[in-house]
């Protein structure tokens, strides 16, 4: 349970960590746009994106193992969409006489796999290099214009950062409840999918109840520490725009230009008919 690394902050003192969180969010969005801008089968464009994210990871001094671990979370999605393409894509020429696997199916499968992996890598680099508080601050900053239509931006950001803060705590709690129910003879491992889903009810209900209790206690603790909404609040974390941010912006702008440029090169011109 504790192995869930997707979204867990990995603190180092790198320039990427020091970047402005709002800028990083924008850059990740730009990066995802870049990945989607790569035309089908233009693997060079995807390689450029991969190159970009690898460079960013190296600068951020995040171990590659950490990045790869985050892919584990979406492995099912990746395999599922790849298998779908390989077996059901009828376009292109069959690999062998009368075969049902086509060259185009294989290429699309590879392309889609790379695309999903690249997007997950980008998103997890953001959460690995940005603490949840910074992330919430970044989103708060980006949502700031919504204040003019009376959207409670600060409260929204606080709710998000508290949610992120409680994920590991609630995972621990779930683990404990599962063990407690197992000790009382609950069975989570056998039976069909419906039986197993039903077996989870005695886990979810205590979890829900204890979450309410936690929320209540947290509210008291926040009250006791003089929380009064956003009116008089100051911020300890400075939001700055430094050289790193400028460099990042230029780098990803360059990536988008590169992707558009590489779209002009056909690796398999015969396929795009």
């Amino acid at each position: 349970m504790k192995e869930m690394t997707f979204g867990q902050y990995y603190p180092t003192n790198s320039p990427v960590h020091k970047m402005n969180a709002s800028v990083k969010i924008l850059l990740v969005i730009a990066y995802i746009v870049a990945v989607f801008m790569v035309d089908y089968y233009h693997f060079l464009g995807l390689l450029a994106c991969l190159f970009a994210i690898v460079i960013a990871t190296v600068i951020a001094r995040v171990p590659f193992g950490r990045m790869l671990k985050s892919i584990k979370g979406v492995i099912f999605l990746v395999v599922f969409s790849a298998v779908l393409q390989v077996f059901f894509n009828k376009q292109g020429t069959p690999l062998w006489e009368g075969g049902f696997i086509t060259d185009e199916g294989l290429l699309t499968a590879g392309f889609i796999t790379m695309r999903i992996v690249l997007i997950v890598l980008g998103a997890s680099l953001l959460t690995l290099t940005t603490s949840p508080v910074e992330l919430a601050d970044g989103i708060e900053f980006l949502l700031y214009p919504l204040k003019y239509i009376k959207f409670p931006v600060h409260e929204f950001a606080l709710i998000m950062s508290i949610a992120l803060r409680f994920i590991p705590t609630l995972l621990e709690e779930t683990d404990r409840i599962i063990k407690a129910q197992k000790a009382r003879g609950a069975n989570f491992e056998s039976g069909n999918i419906f039986k197993r889903a039903k077996a989870l009810i005695p886990v979810l209900i205590p979890l829900l109840i204890s979450s309410f209790r936690r929320a209540d206690e947290l509210a008291d603790a926040m009250d006791a520490r003089c929380y009064a909404g956003s009116k008089v609040r100051t911020k300890y974390k400075k939001t700055t725009f430094g050289l790193g941010d400028l460099f990042g912006l230029l780098f990803f702008a360059g990536l988008i230009v590169g992707v558009v440029y590489l779209n002009g090169f056909y690796l398999y011109p015969y396929l795009v008919a």
Binding site: S131, V133, I162, L164, E217, L218, A221
Partner: peptide, 11 residues
């Protein structure tokens, strides 16, 4: 656990 608001000690 129920009185820590942020995910980093100093925050």
């Amino acid at each position: 656990d129920n009185q820590l608001v942020a995910s980093i000690v100093e925050d």
